[in-house]
């Protein structure tokens, strides 16, 4: 639990960050809250000779809500998400999910940007961002670009972000309808055995739109388009939920670990999604 030596930088503008990234390539990493990266460095599973701290950079903080769009700076902590009344009013699923991430100590430090950019399939925010159809804002040597959360994740710890790019913010349209973030875990602080993010809109007693994403059930988050589609046009009855669950099971690919064998994880995923749909529908 003793990290290897590294150079520490705290640039004051984004150009400085990008210059360092360009200079050191994949020997450099940016650090936000550090609650994924620092443990990996202490275990010497991640070797980061050049560590670039983002906390002195302006413009990465704050939650902005205007014209129905929510923009969250990369350095916003889970704690800030939980305590933002505006966020709770416009996207209450964010608070429900953030409250299920780790424990209060971690949430004081852990950031939304770090959570989504790290590419850890166990993190909760990536699936949630896919459910909300969020956009990730990246800045690099060639300027800014925007990537859909649903296109961002390639494999465990592998994302569309280039080594020289920094994720600066996430944004999404304020979700409508009912919501639920349901997570089964072994204990406080654990990653999910299975988790589901669900948004459902209702019109005339029927599902008019639904979005479903699953966490820690593949090497990336899984947005199950078919699962959402299975609910649309139905009254979210038992048969529809079953169809959604069946569609979701086609999209996930869990592996056995200390949380249990594959059969259990698939069963838990079904139960978690069923409950998330029921709760979201009850709130729609």
């Amino acid at each position: 639990m003793i990290p290897a030596a590294f150079e520490y930088y705290r640039p004051t503008d984004m150009a400085g960050v990008i210059a360092l990234l360009q200079e050191h390539g994949d020997d450099a990493r940016v650090i936000a809250g550090g609650h994924s990266l620092i443990p990996m460095m202490k275990l010497r599973m991640a070797e980061v000779p050049h560590l670039i701290d983002l906390q002195a950079i302006d413009g990465l903080n704050g939650i902005a809500i205007s014209d129905g769009t929510i923009t969250i700076g990369a350095m916003v902590t889970q704690h800030e998400i939980i305590n933002s009344a505006e966020m709770e009013a416009t996207a209450p699923i964010m608070k429900e999910a953030a409250l299920q991430i780790a424990d209060p100590q971690v949430r004081y430090m852990g950031t939304v940007g770090g959570n989504v950019a790290n590419g850890d399939p166990g993190n909760d925010m990536p699936g949630l961002m896919q459910c909300l159809n969020a956009q990730f804002h990246l800045v690099g040597p060639d300027g800014d670009r925007v990537v859909d959360a649903r296109d961002f994740y390639e494999a465990a710890y592998m994302t569309d972000r280039e080594d020289e790019e920094v994720l600066t913010a996430v944004s999404f349209t304020a979700p409508a309808g009912g919501f639920a973030y349901e997570k089964q875990k072994r204990k406080i602080g654990d990653y999910a055995t299975a988790a589901a993010a669900v948004q459902i809109s209702k019109e005339g007693g029927k599902v008019s739109a639904a979005s479903i994403a699953m966490t820690n059930l593949s090497d990336t988050p899984v947005w199950s388009e078919d699962a959402g589609a299975a609910l649309v046009g139905t009254a979210c009855d038992e048969a529809a939920v079953k169809a959604a669950v069946t569609a979701m099971l086609d999209d996930i690919d869990p592996t056995e670990d200390n949380r249990g064998p594959v059969a259990f994880k698939r069963h838990a995923a079904s139960i978690v999604l069923g409950r998330a749909i029921a709760r979201a529908w009850s709130r729609a």
Partner: peptide, 16 residues
Amino acid sequence: HDHWRIWQTANDLGMH
């Protein structure tokens, strides 16, 4: 008796 082993017990007893 962690979650999956309890689940396994229920599964073995045909409760699913």
